[in-house]
Amino acid sequence: MRIEVTNLRRYFGRTKAVNGISFSFDSGQIFGFIGPNGAGKTTTMRIMATLDEPTYGNIYINGISVTDDPEKARRLVGYMPDNLPTHRDISVHEYLDFFARAYGIHDPQRTEVIESIEEFTNLLGIRDKTLKALSKGMKQRVSLARALVHDPPLLVLDEPAAGLDPRARVELRELLKVLAQRGKAILISSHILTELAEIIDGAVIIEHGQMVTAGTIQEILQGTKGAEAATITKVLIRPIDDIEPLYRALLEMPHVEEAHLAGDHIEADIAGDEETACELLAELVRREFRILEFKQHRAHLEEIFMNVTKGHVQ
């Protein structure tokens, strides 16, 4: 299944909340949707979830247009908004039962579906608790379970990790990985880029309603200024007295464009790929330098984000 966003625009009067966004991703992929506040992430996600209509452009979910055939399209989407369920006097099980009924899942299948989802999202132990008695993390899990009730092939998750403690974040991350392995396409927005970096296969970065970059992480690294950071290699040596000879040796090496001493280690800018880095390490070992650590510093999602965005908010 393929999700295609084509030249999506959403204008609110003079404000261009979304202005010509295009990207695509497939089943089994987790795609990060990154941008500063007010960049247009939620608007795009709401259009994908058929809760809003674009001014121009379209989103196709497995070839089904969200504007031309919203009834069909919304059956394929599980949407988890950033606001949590506010129903106070209802238990977790009853809440999920309501949505299963609303999706037209009839008993006895309904009972089986809800129980399997409760088990998957680890809600079995709290199924009889009312929503008002749950922590934010638990509510997020209930919200995710709700989005999964009709087994949609596409999950649209708006800030699912916001306000979660580290344990809940790790649990959510693991759940999303399993869902992706089960073939679901996942579009996830988050401000916690370090968390996002560990699970996403690709990302879309938007700012000011416009797309800055999109693609797999590798593609983004190659296509942005952030790629420069990917070649930095950190080298640690013991004994520390040998750092000067190592520094001089590195400067003489053909692929080393730049190197500088940074306290107890050297940071070298290597022109080339991983193979080049391997050869460089092998050469250093051949020259009998006692390398303690040789680490390629990959650009973080945060660095890429900071490089490609300007921090403007509409």
Binding site: A49, L51, R74, Y79, P85, A102
Partner: peptide
């Protein structure tokens, strides 16, 4: 609280 919007997604 926007809960009604979520109901639409179910076909209600």
């Amino acid at each position: 609280t926007g809960q009604v919007a979520i109901y639409y997604m179910t076909g209600l």
